[in-house]
Write a protein that binds this DNA or RNA. Structure first.
Lengths: 125, 125
DNA sequence: TATTGTTATACTCTATAACTATA
DNA sequence: TATAGTTATAGAGTATAACAATA
């Protein structure tokens, strides 16, 4: 049931609706939450292997939503940072997600949604 | 969060653990729940397009877990039925899933799990 | 001609391994 | 030599379109 709901969310989170892909949004969202992060940290936080992470970052860099800079302390490393355009794109995607959430969980009260969130957060990831 | 949990479940539902793949289990589970069904119904219930459905049924038929017969009433149609081996394979997979569920939702009481199920079931699919 | 099931094909997502540059 | 990032490649999963048999 949980799996089916997840596929529903994925299917309805179209690029057309959000402006960007769901995975792209999750990466931008992670960057927005904290300070500019090392590429490695981004990968780990989002469960992406190094390869996938690079590809995703490439897309976002091409779109101008992130910037990659060499870490002066260790020139092998890249520091990833959200751009202003990236912030705007993220906001749009988040608004779309909220609307979608309202549609999908329309039958649940605010309180019930909070309960759901809390229960899910206590499951092992 | 819901999406992350879903990927956790998928990743941990390995063929090694369950004996069959998750999608195969879902199809067998559907057949087990009701009477022998038309291929078309199976597709629709599991959100598979016709192509995918055929491929999945092919796998299961090769493994001897289902049987396909022509519908005498309309020879274009196929009736799909679970075999005894299929039933056994399904049972094994279901047991593995239960164990997995216990691990993932270990922090939740029985009552809380019931609440979670009920909340999820009320979301739009 | 329309419908059921099938095959062929391509596209996305993900996973593995080899390569480059820095340390 | 070990590590961070990259590239190349292959494998799942999924979607689209063309095809065969039957109605």
């Amino acid at each position: 049931m949980l799996l089916r709901l997840a596929t529903t969310i994925k299917k309805r989170s179209t690029e057309e609706l959000m402006g960007i892909k769901l995975r792209q949004m999750m990466l931008l969202s992670y960057l927005n939450a904290g300070a500019p992060a090392l590429q490695q940290q981004v990968c780990e936080a989002l469960w992406l292997d190094a390869n996938n992470c690079v590809l995703l970052l490439n897309e976002l860099e091409d779109m101008g939503y992130i910037e990659r800079r060499r870490d002066p302390a260790d020139r092998r490393r890249h520091v990833v940072e959200l751009t202003e355009d990236g912030r705007i794109a993220l906001l749009r995607a988040e608004r779309a997600q909220e609307t979608l959430g309202d549609e999908i969980f329309a039958a649940l009260s605010d309180e019930e949604r909070a309960t759901l969130r809390s229960l899910l957060s206590r499951a092992a990831v």
